[in-house]
Simulated assay, not measured.
Amino acid sequence: MKMAQNACKYKEKGLDEKGVILVEHRRCYDEIINYCNVLAYSGQLKPLKGKAKKTNPFPPMYCIHVNGNSTVTNSSRTNLYEVEAIVNWLLVNREQIEMFYGKTEDVVGIITPFSGQKNSLKYALKKAGFDTRIFKIGTVHALQGAERSLVLFSMVYGKGDSGTMFFDRDNKPNMLNVAVSRAKDSFIVFANTAILDKKAKTPSGILANYLTYH
């Protein structure tokens, strides 16, 4: 894509990169894509799906607080508190999800920044009776180009964890932009809310202002 952009002669006003931006967006509800519009597109996207329906089972931008910190093993992070919270949430809401959408594994995607967390989620979900062969679970690259009605995002980090959070590095919007825009109806964050600073001009700080909290 970079090679194609560099070879392109056309450049739109207000954009740093060459090429044509596709401004019409129909995948996500307005409440979801509005975050991406502010984060990565300087307000140039035109949301065309409309606002979330009141009959939907879950809010469009939602955060579930999970106490606990991450651990680092073999240069990857895991947070077993979030693993447990996600599995329990899916078990509690499975019937509602399947009545509204269809088979859980077909309509839910789970994204996390770390392969260690991905592996822990797969193990726990399989143990809980979910079919992990068809479940989309992984880092943001696993769902790039894909879409799901419900996307669960495990942030992994806890209060006091050292270092800049992976999805905030260099203030680049790529990870959270792709992760959020995979969700058609609901983007549900599992996180220790102490790491979400609404005043920060980071991707996660901006996200914090778009979430409703449980």
Results as ranks from 00 to 15, higher is better:
I86E: 04
I86M: 10
V92C: 11
V92A: 14
R94C: 14
E95V: 09
I97W: 08
I97L: 13
E98G: 11
E98D: 12
F100Y: 15
F100N: 07
G102S: 12
G102V: 13
E105V: 10
E105Q: 14
D106K: 10
V107R: 10
V108M: 12
G109N: 01
G109E: 07
I110L: 09
I110Y: 07
I111T: 01
I111S: 00
I111C: 09
T112G: 07
T112P: 03
G116Q: 00
Q117E: 05
K118S: 15
K118A: 08
S120C: 02
L121Q: 07
L121R: 03
K122Q: 12
K122N: 09
A124I: 04
A124R: 13
K126R: 15
K126A: 15
K126N: 15
G129F: 15
G129M: 14
F130W: 05
F130N: 04
T132N: 05
R133F: 08
I134N: 01
I134W: 00
F135S: 07
F135M: 15
G138P: 03
T139Q: 09
H141N: 14
A142E: 04
A142N: 05
G145Y: 10
G145N: 07
A146T: 00
S149H: 11
L150N: 02
V151Y: 02
L152A: 02
F153H: 06
